[in-house]
Nucleic acid binder design. Structure first.
Lengths: 228, 228
DNA sequence: TGCCATTAAATTGTTGACAATTTGGTGACA
DNA sequence: TGTCACCAAATTGTCAACAATTTAATGGCA
């Protein structure tokens, strides 16, 4: 009831992206057009455009005559996403170290404050989102739009992967002050150190996932083929 | 009249992508929905989906109530695309060198044959397309879907950039047997050499562009402002 | 002539109805 | 009871008419 103006297509995308970044929506969730029309108060046309756009980001999976579901990355896809992140963020950091400006550092430190606040207030959803957004903000310092957009896609997919394969016990994101150390290294334009921290950081996140256990949907073939 | 079955959405995308890769369509070209409906024999609904998908790849530019045009990258965007290619293809080559298999090399050599044939037959359009596709095939050897898809986008954008800023005299693509040398290096799993060749290769392509001269469309303002 | 408001044509955006497909359930029958 | 065919509901796909916007053209007016 807060907003009477109609939501635009990009608004809806953002809302869905946020819910993924905060891990409030599970991979594999079925999204029917009509229900989303009701929720966001937009027409089916808009929702269908949103589905198409998000499917390009591998956030939503579209199957003909079957509708849309929140993407549920396979183990293979998950590894490829993290491999891509290692390569991309490493390259971005080198350029970021060359191009970083004082204002960037201030901005990042303000972001770190927010992360800390969310952590103190035990606002887990906000903290998870901020952890992801940190990597995106870091990327922007490199001033390369195509690579930033690409990394953004990877971060959203990572969020889905963590939703799916994350061990419940340990919050599988950036602890140990690695974000802080990244900002420090960047402030000194130390690309090498930043890259090393980032590599460890991403390996750390990936290592906290458990890929051995159950899968979703299509892998039943493999499971039951072996059992019979 | 060759095909009576209706073209699907992906077919239309591919046709448009091909025409860009062969540089048969100029950046900035206006695409009206109705005309494309007639050309491809599909409904407006399909064309609109195609526009939306290709706009996500930065191949088509969508402006609200203004319709679609073939993207016309700015100089700044062009530099960023090539920077992204250098970073991405370098990373891809390292992984490709680790994972390359004999079949891959055979496949690449067959592709080189095609390139040579097109060159001998003076089929310029085909040769330009094949030159671009070489980089995409190379990327696939690294077995990383997200990065492959990303590179694909960059290659298409490169094609637009070359259309726009390429000097007419020299065909601003891969000569000097650099593609051959890349395959050789890859066959010996020599990532370092491959990366060096690729870096030179991309710099070479970029250096053949002329960013000083005229621009398209909106830059007329600047041009005539200076002249008056 | 040059400029500006008004109008007509062309193009894009949106909506709703209808068709096609999938999904879930019911009941007949072995 | 278990299986299969069939039917009904729900969901997605398509299309055509209509609304809104932009673009081009015309004609008045200084």
């Amino acid at each position: 009831m807060a907003n009477t103006t109609a939501l635009t297509e990009e608004d809806v995308c953002q809302r869905i992206r946020d819910s993924i970044l905060e891990q409030r929506i599970a991979p594999g969730t079925k999204l029917t057009e009509e229900s989303l029309c009701g929720i966001f108060g937009v027409s089916r046309t808009t929702i269908r455009r949103v589905f198409l756009l998000l499917s390009k980001d591998n956030i939503i999976r579209l199957e003909r005559n079957k509708g849309a579901t929140i993407a549920a990355p396979t183990v293979e896809e998950a590894h490829q996403v993290f491999e891509a992140r290692r390569a991309t963020e490493k390259a971005l950091l080198r350029r970021a170290a060359e191009r970083v400006q004082p204002g960037d550092i201030a901005h990042l430190r303000a972001h770190l404050e927010e992360e800390q606040t969310a952590l103190n207030e035990a606002d887990l959803a906000a903290w998870i989102r901020l952890s992801g957004e940190f990597h995106i903000k870091l990327a922007h310092i490199a001033r390369n739009e195509p690579m930033c957009t690409f990394l953004q896609q990877l971060v959203f997919q990572s969020s889905l992967i963590i939703s799916q394969y994350g061990t419940a016990g340990a919050p599988s994101s950036c602890k140990g002050g690695e974000h802080e150390r990244l900002v420090d290294a960047l402030e000194h334009q130390d690309a090498e150190t930043a890259q090393t921290i980032m590599a460890e950081h991403l390996r750390g996140i990936e290592s906290q996932l458990s890929f051995e256990t159950e899968e979703t949907g299509q892998d039943l073939h493999v499971i039951f083929a072996a059992a019979s």
